[in-house]
Design a protein around this nucleic acid. Structure first.
Lengths: 222, 222
DNA sequence: CGCCACCTTACGGAAATCTGTAAAGTATAT
DNA sequence: ATATACTTTACAGATTTCCGTAAGGTGGCG
């Protein structure tokens, strides 16, 4: 079983909840340490390697609030990427409230994480299970997550909705294009998004994006 | 100090984190109980009153995920409303990630909550502080929340409405400027319209015109 | 009157939208 | 295989938005 674990989670209550559970439910000789900031996590991680006592397991959230400290790493995804670069063999379990299969699938295929636990009423129990599974060189995914859905192609309407909702939330088409690429959703070029929205102008007789969004929200379609 | 506390929070890790902290940092003779569902919280609450041993403090989250069980109460807000109806004197502290001053202010003015703790890197410490404050009959709000912002309601005057409605109808700022000139409404320069809308970005925390229009329509202000 | 705060307007540059054209890729039917 | 229709993508330009600076106008106040 793992002897050295690092927990990266910015909410103090959750952080303590995880650490307490690990301390009481794992073997006594396991060192469990915690960080509230991605940057601190990464530094501690590097230091441990330099000192010849590397961590064996990283448990991290994905979303980290802004704080008083200027940050280099602002998300769990970025943290994982950096960590993987300097230690490809480290075990990583993500513990987050994200439940989008597409996004989670990307973590497994690209970031090579070993487990994904979706926060919820059984999250802590699942996390313990995940640790044991990962320790046995198996992967773990919360049962309520259906990764198969990640591979199903979006219907046109659903695709349009993603774009329109993001536009209504103030994202630019370039940003939306980048978000789609990160989620491995295709098509995802700015040009295609442009065309899709232009076609919606015709369809809904809108003069421009402002008009289109206003119409659709008033119609309750977004 | 409170002798009987009920914690309502659907994420198991967070729930345990809170309960563990309370158990170790409050007096030993305090009964702390926990629930993962609003409905269960409410039932336990009613039962305690019926048995003549009511809770003195309720600590609750606002957002509760859907689960396998059909729910009557689906949010902390609904829970608080029901609880207040049968026990107007119960102390309530909300522990949530919501950071919108308007929303939090409503909890104090309408639901008469006694404390609000915003989840974050210091959330658990703040929660302990909040409990002590509420015990002394004072209210508590996380320091990063500026409730004053909640009271500065931004009224849209008639001039703002003309511009916003025209934007939502797909007119460009140049067109709106021309329309105003034709109607002999002043000010009417494109530049002034620009400034007006930019100020509305700040006031309503919108990233761009799409975002602003979407927000205002959703709020029913246009 | 001069000073100050605020509003209006002009202007310019960077970024984003809107529109058209064209090339490349995909799937289907013959 | 080839033709066809459709989708995706790149690119280019004209227009519009976004944001900063600065100049002029207006009204309050000692």
């Amino acid at each position: 079983m793992f002897k050295k674990i690092l927990v990266s989670e910015d909410f103090q209550d959750t952080n303590k909840g995880i650490v307490n559970a690990l301390e009481s439910r794992l073997q006594v000789d396991c060192i469990i340490q915690e960080e509230l900031y991605c940057d601190n996590t990464f530094n501690r991680f590097k230091t441990a390697i330099a000192e010849g006592t590397p961590y064996e397991l990283l448990i991290t959230d994905l979303s980290f609030k802004e704080g008083p400290i200027t940050r280099k790493l602002t998300s769990g995804q970025e943290l994982i990427k950096e960590v993987r670069q300097i230690d490809p063999s480290i075990n990583i379990i993500v513990n987050s409230m994200v439940d989008d299969p597409v996004e989670i699938n990307t973590l497994f295929t690209e970031q090579k994480i070993n487990g994904y636990v979706c926060k919820g009423r059984n999250g802590l129990n699942e996390l313990i299970t995940a640790i044991h599974e990962v320790d046995q060189n198996r992967t773990y995914v919360s049962p309520q997550i259906n990764l198969k859905k990640a591979n199903t192609v979006f219907e046109l309407d659903e695709y349009d909705l993603i774009i329109l909702k993001d536009l209504a939330d103030g994202f630019t088409k370039k940003e939306i294009s980048e978000k789609l690429k990160k989620k491995n959703v295709s098509p995802n070029s700015e040009s295609t998004i442009d065309k899709k929205v232009s076609r919606l102008f015709d369809q809904f007789e809108a003069r421009n994006t402002h008009h289109l969004i206003a119409k659709l929200i008033k119609q309750g379609k977004i």
